[in-house]
Design a protein around this nucleic acid. Structure first.
Length: 271
DNA sequence: CTATAGACCTGACGGC
DNA sequence: TGCCGTCAGGTCTATA
């Protein structure tokens, strides 16, 4: 499940392969991957454009093209991008972006949830996102004021991309464990010291995730087909039947607003 | 405002 | 072996 650290890793590792290359064309095997514009216009408009920059906003990958258009890719739950040469018999390839040096980028997505846009103004797609949690502008005050506006479980607030961009199910659980906050605590009920711990924890777990090149829990692969190792350092996320590394208490699994949630009932008390 | 359910999809897994 | 139901979770939309 690509979240901020996974998309950041893909961006970093894809950059040397595609910057400066010109897109000769795109093969679409599942047209509904394209959200905007129509599939035919998408194919037409992208051909001949040069890739001039690669960026990331939340979980969105931004491919800046000559002429001002941006190709935006969201991998949702099972998407991944593969560079040439892909493994023989790579399944579930939904699109192939062909480049002028006879290499390609393969968009693999078993569950077909991934989406692409080709737009003149990226803000049309990413404009509603909350702040980037790894930029200096993401201060404790910003996080605090945003969370205080919501009387919803803190876990749900962290997953709301309009409050903070890029945090998904795995890193939300990790951040709450590091900050010692119970996932169902109302977001507007956190004390200032809890808020401070959470603010630091978000950066900490995201940076650790990037340092480990992402977490390969399910369908996440890096562009060269290798896996990330962030999941090997997870304390609670997806640690079914495991013990808390801090106190030895069995990790609990609950549903918070329909999302699978792992936490330590002793370290993350609900007062 | 918050909450819930369904939609989008398919592989993996447990039960029989 | 094989069929079937359930689950996974990012995001959007509809409804209570």
């Amino acid at each position: 499940m690509p979240e901020l650290p996974e998309v950041e890793t893909i961006k970093n590792e894809l950059t040397p392969h595609i910057i400066g290359r010109t897109i000769t064309g795109i093969d679409l095997f599942w047209e509904r991957t394209v959200r905007q514009p129509s599939a035919s216009e998408f194919r037409e408009r992208i051909a001949g454009k040069k890739i001039v920059g690669l960026g990331r906003r939340g979980k969105y990958l931004l491919v800046q093209l000559s002429g001002g258009d941006t190709l935006i890719i969201h991998l949702r739950m099972t998407g991944s991008l593969w560079q040439t040469p892909p493994p023989e018999g790579l399944k579930f390839v939904r699109a192939i972006i062909n480049l002028d040096n006879k290499t390609s980028i393969y968009f693999r997505d078993p569950r077909k949830f991934g989406k692409m846009w080709l737009v003149a103004d990226a803000d049309c797609v990413t404009g509603e996102l909350g702040p980037e949690p790894l930029l200096p502008a993401f201060t404790l005050e910003i996080l605090s004021s945003r969370l205080k506006r919501h009387h919803i479980p803190i876990k749900a607030a962290l997953l709301d991309q309009g409050i903070v961009a890029g945090v998904g199910n795995m890193y939300a659980d990790e951040a709450l464990f590091v900050a010692k906050i119970h996932p169902t605590r109302p977001a507007d009920s956190l004390t200032s010291s809890e808020m401070k711990r959470l603010h630091a924890a978000i950066s900490q777990v995201l940076l650790a995730g990037i340092g480990n090149k992402g977490a390969s829990i399910e369908n996440y692969y890096r562009p060269d087909g290798s896996k990330g190792t962030a999941h090997t350092e997870f304390k609670v996320a997806h640690q079914r039947d495991a013990l808390c590394p801090r106190c030895g208490t069995p990790i609990e699994y609950i549903k918070v607003r329909g999302r699978g949630t792992y936490f330590c009932p002793k370290c993350q008390k609900l007062k």
